[in-house]
Nucleic acid binder design. Structure first.
Lengths: 334, 334
DNA sequence: TTGTAAGCGTTATCAA
DNA sequence: TTGATAACGCTTACAA
């Protein structure tokens, strides 16, 4: 390991006391320009980097934030979560923070982990994903005054913490709009079973856009989990209708990929713009995941560096955009 | 935040000195059973958790290991990396270690980050991915005596560090074997351009298995990067041959998905078993990523807890397995 | 503007 | 077997 350079060594090298070096670092305005430059030069020359452990003992701050990493359950989340983690790590570093990972099987296990991480490593805050109705985690963190930001709205829970989310409805609305613009009039929706905030949100965008355009989506919905063949079966059911849809908006790329086996790519739009969309030339709604991550970091860091308490909860809703692949179909002959 | 419980509080509560509590934690054999139980009870009752920063100041160990998180470039790596990170985090926790993330644009940036992470946070070690020929990172870490394990062989570089890898050749060999068992005799290979250790390795498994069975793969190879349409184009080229292949082994799921558009799923096998394989019912070779992660952690922790120096480099090669989806085709009529 | 002293929570050393 | 003391590297009073 590289031998360690302490503040003491810098002080000796710059011919000042330890405290002056510390002041250069933490309160530069207290130090004369001449000494500051001399100290800075010494820091540079020796490659000094303040030891966090020692710093933490005095300040109580670790400059570490925690994020849970999930097993990529139903796949999609995996790739989005991955981009999210990368975005967080990249945004946190320039702000002087590092990301620590943890896993947890459920909310209560996660809460136990908070306690552990807080006591042992003094994490400064957390970034939560997969918020849901009646989330025990946010309640616990709030109660214990631990700073945190969620990626995902509280979905029916109390709205008293910072959150960042992507407007899924706006995404499916844009997809629907694009299909309408291509002349489609009957546009089906293949999504997830009711009850998940994210799924319901995405469906509402399709329904809203269709209604706005004066068309009716009644009967053109099939709800099913992601999974082999599910998207295809749903699409076939809809296509077997007396007055079948000519295009599909889907809640996910796996579902869209299934629908694709029942019809062609120009009439199907997926969600999340995963590798499978890219690999098959499928149009898909892309979440601004890196933006979301950067925003989460920025909200959290604001709170950590500012006064954590007297700061109102802030909410940011980002708009996804449609990634169009292949030329879309000409108006269908009705 | 939960109020902090120090070793001092435990000592008072158990009517012993601070040092005795510390001994119970770090050298239990020095303490009588009676006092030990009393101290343990107090620890439990107060919910004491040793402060890592303070501990680190004495021991120099942070119980933190670093892992780089990449932007999911060409997609596949994203989902595999994601599973890997999850596996690492899950395996590290019971061993008392936490995972810290960092990003880096290239090797030299990563090396700069090591220095930073080591100086500021005193990370105990690193787990590296994406090893390549002439990897400057492993050289630097070795030179600075920083413990590390790589997920991936050194591919031509010096073999003097611990590594864990998946035997890609065994995977494509198994895929080839399965197609041979189904009666296929001319089996094409669609893979990545030459030069990447991983890609060359996968191709060699197909070639070897075909040769072993007494068949010839000459002319049945197409090499192309992952990307929209590439797999399809490659498959079509091969199918246009005078004596075309009846089945395909592919280096990745995106390539396989492309090939799938040129022929049917029963004759194509992908690699990495990503969501797209699952969503389309494609057979694919699955890497034991969680095993690999657990093995990396175990090798690293061994080295950290044991004597880091006098320990020979250890290498572990894990076997992937073929995930068969859909019934495979009957022997083709030649 | 700079320096002195104290203390954060832990463990290593050494004495009892 | 247990306990007192010092030290890890830093920052926050406070004094010069």
């Amino acid at each position: 390991m590289p031998e360690k350079v302490t503040i003491e060594a810098v002080a000796r090298s710059a011919q000042v006391s330890r405290q002056t070096v510390s002041n250069v670092l933490n309160a530069p305005h207290l130090v004369s320009t001449a000494t500051r430059d001399r100290v800075l030069a010494a820091i540079e020359a020796l490659g000094f980097r303040a030891n966090q452990a020692a710093r933490q003992m005095r300040t109580g701050k670790s400059r570490l934030v925690g994020v849970r990493i999930d097993p990529s359950r139903n796949g999609i989340e995996g790739t989005v979560l991955d981009r999210f983690l990368h975005g967080l790590t990249e945004a946190a570093a320039p702000a002087g923070y590092r990301v620590v990972l943890y896993t947890a099987a459920d909310d209560s296990a996660e809460i136990a982990t908070y306690a552990d991480l807080l006591a042992a490593y003094a994490l400064d805050g957390f970034i939560l994903t997969h918020t849901h109705h009646g989330d025990a985690r946010t309640a616990w963190l709030h109660e214990h005054r631990v700073p945190f930001v969620t990626f995902g709205r509280p979905w029916g829970g109390l709205d008293l913490h910072d959150w960042v989310d992507v407007d899924g409805a706006a995404g499916t609305a844009a997809a629907t709009r694009a299909l309408l613009d291509d002349g489609h009039r009957r546009i089906g929706y293949i999504g997830w079973p009711e009850g998940s905030g994210v799924g319901d949100d995405r469906r509402s965008g399709w329904a809203r856009e269709l209604a706005t355009a004066g068309f009716d989506g009644a009967g053109l919905v099939r709800l099913t989990p992601d999974g082999t063949g599910n998207g295809e079966a749903a699409a076939r059911e809809l296509l077997a209708l007396p007055d079948p849809p000519t295009a599909f908006v889907c809640a996910s790329d796996p579902l869209a990929l299934g629908a694709l086996r029942a019809t062609d790519a120009d009439r199907v739009i997926g969600f999340d713009d995963t590798v499978m969309a890219e690999a098959t030339g499928l149009s898909s709604v892309r979440q601004p995941v890196a933006d979301a991550a950067a925003t989460c970091v920025s909200l959290l860091v604001d709170r950590l560096d500012g006064n954590p308490d007297r700061m109102p909860a802030r909410h940011v809703l980002l708009r996804p955009h449609l990634v169009v692949r292949r030329s879309r179909a000409k108006p269908p002959t009705p």
